[in-house]
Every structure is written in structure tokens, then in C-alpha cells.
Design a protein around this nucleic acid. Structure first.
Length: 559
RNA sequence: UGGGGUGUCGCCAAGCGGUAAGGCACUGGGUUUUGAUCUCAGCAUGCGUAGGUUCGAAUCCUGCCACCCCAGCCA
């Protein structure tokens, strides 16, 4: 895969793979894997991991597995599996053959547990969780051996068999590896291999009541699948010795190696499945795919394109630093992609009626407008012009002292260009009994479609508009940041305290030009001078259009 | 605290002993029927810090400091 234009020139994992290939360390193929636990929806951080794993594989002519690390039935659900598959595909990646599940290998894991017992390297421990914690010791003090550490092979096999048969209650015992209770690495102080969970599993039903721990599963899953480079995040560095202990002490078919890189954090949001689930469960947002969520499905519904997300991820470093990327970096990629690929259209969010005095009543003049100012190949759309129009309230002022540089919009007595149409002059303001402006009377300057008026009628600027009679009433949802602070929860009791309570505004009675209203759900537009918008995936119809604001245009006006 | 990591511009980041790439953000100029796009220019005598080695150090050595991770029968 070619580097994205701004992507870091290299990274340490890429070098390792290139060196391994050169040294023929794993043969000539590269196999990576993306191993989510199906306990929530994927977020922007996972998008990075997906891009790294699938991207590296693709770059070296290899493949990437999608494998569900489903070793804990308590938190996992089929809904998450479906959503994760859909998100990966939407991003444009295809996993190697069929989807994999850790649960596919449960019988093998069990056989290997018996193997470890027979080698004297595992034992059933009856310590309670609290006792085990005490026995584990602390940073400066070594742990003490469990009183059950020296059970015989026969006894351990019998006990494990009965654990599997469901004879014991949850929490009454576990299977542990016999490694080193004095290790400075806590993960090596006789880690748990199996625990009892009398819970129905989404894949295996009630077939098992003992479930392997992450450590006892992950490396073996990689080994079974022939993964060559097992790429994970920094917090697993301390687990690498354990990962290797299993591949060394078990008759695994291959010996994958684990490499860790820094997980992605972004300011003004959270990237933690636990926290995101809380936002959903406690009603701060309307579901995992709420456009304010940093989930892949949320960003999709917001109107972010898969390409923009991939460009963003490809621009991130794969390194061991754990920094926080500025959300502006993501927003740049969104605008950059949408500027190139979104068709232009016009939509008035705060309508103010303009009546063109010198345009015949009832006539519809069909203009033609480009779908993109710099890409002729994108074609054109029809744009109806009528006597009554709408412009945005913010684009009109009666203050005739406003400088032309300062206010490049319509001012009483002055000229402005209606985008793609005529130059008009505001002649009169109509107000209601409260002094509220309800209508503007204007005249158009003949011959100004596709041509400039004489210098004395030079427009102050260009504003967007829509026909009052030919446009379609639409709902537009405008989103602000979900959090008020850069690092939610950093300086408050809970990240929930930093939630922006007014992150959603639903604007009814907007007017969108007919060509845009007719679009299919998930069609992205740039509503000129407003920003990028997408027709809602679920609720949009041509009759009752619903658009979500993806992001505003850059605004360099000095306020 | 014991162990594992990391420290280069406001943010991300390349660099791996030869004299600080790039992107975002920001600032200023130009073009423009989007205050958009595009375009031009500016933006670290400095690489956590203190010493040392060297003709030469962000890069090597030593000490110190800061931050992150582990101490779940979560992953």
C-alpha cells in the first residue's frame, strides 16, 4: 500500500517485518490479526489498529485475520460481533477467509491445559480471589506459593476435569500456571489459565463452564492461525514474557512474536469501550452510532468517509510514545477528503424571505450549477430560481455603515451575488409588529448570470440561497463537541461531568435545494458556505430530508 | 515503591555520530461567483535535565527528573 501523502516515513514494526522477510524468519508470508473482544462497538482507536494490522499485511503481500477474542461470555454479545464486522468492511478491509473466534479453539486450549498439568506446570488453586491477591504479594515483596501449588498431576487432572464438568461453583477454584511467585513481573506470579463462568456463551452456548484467560488464549490463538506478527498496544508489554512462556512450553504449531505500539488518544473525546458504553447506557447519546460518538459507526453516521478515516490513521505514527492527537488533525482529514469528493449544494438553515421585484410571479427559471467548482467531471445539477427566495438571516444587515471587507453579504441598498445566479440589490426591509425582519424586497441585475455587473454594482460578496417555492423543507442536526474539555475526567470526578449538555441542536424548517433533497441516505454534500453534511443513514427520505452536519468549513473571517 | 515503557516546535512526528524532515495548528501575502478550495511565505542556534566521551552528540556513556502501564478469577 502506498503511503498516504502525510504519513510518517517509517515505523519500527515495518522495519521488523521487512527484516524478518529478508531473513526468512517466518517463511515468505506475513499474517497479522485484528483481535477485538465483542464487548462494545469499535472506535477511532480501533480504526488505527485496523489500519496498522490490515495495512501492514497488505503492504507486504500478506493477509490479516479478523478474530474475536471471545473468552469472557459475561460481557460479550452477538450484536457487537455483527457491528464490528460491518465496521471493518465499511473501512474497506477484507479479512483472510472466514472470521475466526477464540472460542473455535476451546477444545485445543483445554488439551493444552492438561498438557501443562502433566508437565507439572499448572495446578488447580482453591484460593479465593481475595486470598490469591494477598498471596500474590506486592511490587517490593515477592508473593508466597499457594498452598495448592504442589498438588499431584493426578489430582490436578481430576480437579480440572471436574471443573469442566461443572462440579464447582464460580470462584471456587481456578487453574494456574506454575511459573514464579517472586517474579518482579506480576504477570508471571502464577497467572490464571482458566476460571469458572456458568454463563451462556454467544458462540458455544452452554458447552463450557470454564473459560480461558486472555493470557492463556491469545498467543495460542496466534500460533494456531500462523500469525507471524502479533501487534498490540503498549499495556500488553508486561504480558509478552507470558505470551512467550506459553509458546515455549506448549506444542504450538508456530511461534508468533508480539510487538506493541502506542494506542491512539484524541483530545475532546474518550476512547474507551467502557466509557462509551456508559454514555450509551446512561442516555448521554442516542446509541453507539450517535454522530457525536467517536465510534466507527458514529463517525460514519456523522458523515465521515472511510477514506478520510484511513488517511487520518495512515498519518499517525506507529511508535511507542503515548501521545494525544489533536482533534484538528482528524478534522483536517475529513475536510480534505470531503472537499474533493462531496458534491456542492445549497441549504438555508435560518430562512429569511427575499422577494425579487423584477422577476415574474410564478415563473421557474432553471439554472445549471456545477456540482464541484474545481472538478468539472463531477457534472452539474439543476437549480430553480423563482421570485421568492430564502437566504440565511445571518447574511443580511440593515447597517449600511458596515465595511465591504468586514461584511461580505447583503446590506440594505447594496449588491450581493446569489451563488450560481444573479447579483441582486436589497431595496427595502419588511418588518413585523415586533420589529423583526420578515422579508426583503430586492431587484436583480439583468445579465449577471455567469457575468459580472459594471463596477458600480460590484457585489459585496457571494451568499447562498434557495427557491422558496421549489426547495424542500428539511431537518438539519448540528453537532458540537461531546465534551467541553480536552481531557474528559482529568480534572473532574468523572468524565461524565465534562459532557457538553448542548452538543446536539435539531434545526427544523431548513430549506434545501431539490436536487440535494432527492439524494439517497448517506450521500455527502458540501452545503456551500455552511459546511459538510450527510443525508442521515436511517431517517432521511426525499420527502422529509434529514441531514447531519459533519463539520463546518474552515472560517478565516476575523470576528 | 519492584518491574515494564516513554521523553525532539502548541499537537503528532522523522532522525540512529556529521551539524534539526514533514503534517496539523497558528501568522501574513496572492487567486477566487463558497469569508471554502488553491497558492506563496513565516514558524526549534534547539532535541526532559546535568555532566562525560568525541574534531563533531538529538544521536554514545553516566546520574537525575517527569509522565504512562502492571499489582482483575477484564482484555
Amino acid at each position: 500500500m502506498a503511503d498516504a501523502p502525510n504519513s510518517p516515513t517509517n515505523n519500527f514494526i515495518r522495519k521488523i517485518i521487512a527484516d524478518d522477510l529478508a531473513a526468512n524468519a517466518h517463511g515468505t508470508k506475513v499474517l497479522t490479526r485484528f483481535p477485538p473482544e465483542p464487548n462494545g462497538y469499535l472506535h477511532i482507536g480501533h480504526a488505527k489498529s485496523i489500519c496498522v494490522n490490515f495495512g501492514l499485511a497488505e503492504e507486504f503481500g500478506g493477509q490479516c485475520n479478523l478474530r474475536f477474542d471471545d473468552t469472557n461470555p459475561e460481557k460479550e454479545e452477538q450484536e457487537y460481533i455483527d457491528a464490528i464486522k460491518s465496521d471493518v468492511q465499511w473501512l474497506g478491509f477484507q479479512w483472510a477467509d472466514e472470521v475466526k473466534f477464540a472460542s473455535n479453539y476451546f477444545p485445543q486450549f483445554y488439551a493444552w491445559a492438561i498438557h501443562l498439568i502433566e508437565q507439572g506446570k499448572a495446578y488447580v488453586c482453591d484460593l479465593s480471589a481475595e486470598q490469591a491477591s494477598e498471596y500474590r504479594g506486592w511490587a517490593t515483596e515477592p508473593g508466597k506459593p499457594s498452598p495448592y501449588r504442589e498438588r499431584t498431576v493426578e489430582e490436578n487432572v481430576d480437579l480440572l476435569t471436574r471443573m469442566k464438568a461443572g462440579e464447582f461453583d464460580e470462584g471456587s477454584c481456578v487453574l494456574r500456571a506454575k511459573i514464579d511467585m517472586a517474579s518482579p513481573n506480576m504477570n508471571l506470579r502464577d497467572p490464571i489459565l482458566y476460571r469458572i463462568r456458568k454463563e451462556t456463551h454467544h458462540q458455544t452456548g452452554d458447552e463450557w463452564c470454564i473459560y480461558p484467560s486472555y493470557d492463556f488464549a491469545h498467543g495460542q490463538e496466534d500460533a494456531i492461525e500462523g500469525v507471524t506478527h502479533s501487534i498490540c498496544t503498549l499495556e500488553f508489554q508486561d504480558h509478552r514474557p507470558l505470551y512467550e512462556w506459553f509458546t515455549e512450553n506448549l506444542p504450538v504449531p508456530s511461534t508468533p512474536k508480539q510487538y506493541e505500539f502506542g494506542r491512539l488518544s484524541i483530545n475532546y473525546t474518550v476512547t474507551s469501550k467502557r466509557k462509551l458504553k456508559q454514555l450509551v447506557d446512561e442516555g448521554y447519546v442516542n446509541g453507539w452510532d450517535d454522530p457525536r460518538m467517536p465510534t466507527i459507526s458514529g463517525m460514519r453516521r456523522r458523515g465521515y468517509s472511510a477514506q478520510a478515516l484511513r488517511n487520518f490513521c495512515d498519518g499517525l505514527a506507529v511508535a511507542k510514545t503515548d501521545g494525544t492527537v489533536d482533534i484538528a488533525q482528524l478534522e483536517f482529514e475529513i475536510r480534505n477528503d470531503l472537499n474533493d469528493n462531496a458534491a456542492r449544494a445549497m441549504c438555508v438553515l435560518n430562512p429569511l424571505k427575499v422577494v425579487i421585484s423584477n422577476f415574474p410571479e410564478g415563473e421557474v427559471k432553471t439554472l445549471t450549477a456545477a456540482l464541484h467548482p474545481n472538478k468539472e467531471e463531477m457534472g452539474t445539477r439543476e437549480l430553480p430560481f423563482t421570485k421568492e427566495l430564502y437566504i440565511d438571516k445571518a447574511d443580511y444587515s440593515e447597517d449600511t455603515t458596515l465595511g465591504r471587507k468586514k461584511f461580505k453579504r447583503l446590506v440594505l441598498g447594496d449588491h450581493v451575488r446569489l451563488r450560481g445566479a444573479y447579483v441582486i440589490k436589497a431595496d427595502e426591509t419588511i418588518k413585523d409588529e415586533n420589529g423583526e425582519i420578515i422579508e426583503i424586497r430586492a431587484t436583480l441585475v439583468e445579465g449577471t448570470i455567469g457575468a459580472n455587473p459594471p463596477p458600480e454594482q460590484k457585489p459585496r460578496g457571494v451568499i447562498h440561497w434557495v427557491s422558496a417555492t421549489e426547495s424542500v423543507a428539511a431537518t438539519v442536526r448540528v453537532y458540537e463537541r461531546l465534551f467541553n474539555v480536552e481531557n474528559p475526567g482529568k480534572d473532574s470526578e468523572s468524565f461524565l461531568h465534562d459532557v457538553n449538555k448542548v452538543s446536539l441542536s435539531v434545526v427544523e424548517n431548513c430549506f434545501v435545494e431539490p436536487a440535494a433533497a432527492a439524494c439517497a441516505p448517506e450521500t455527502r454534500f458540501q452545503f456551500e458556505r455552511e459546511g459538510y453534511f450527510v443525508a442521515d443513514k436511517i431517517e432521511h427520505t426525499s420527502e422529509k430530508p434529514v441531514f447531519n452536519k459533519t463539520i463546518g468549513l474552515r472560517d478565516s473571517s476575523k470576528k
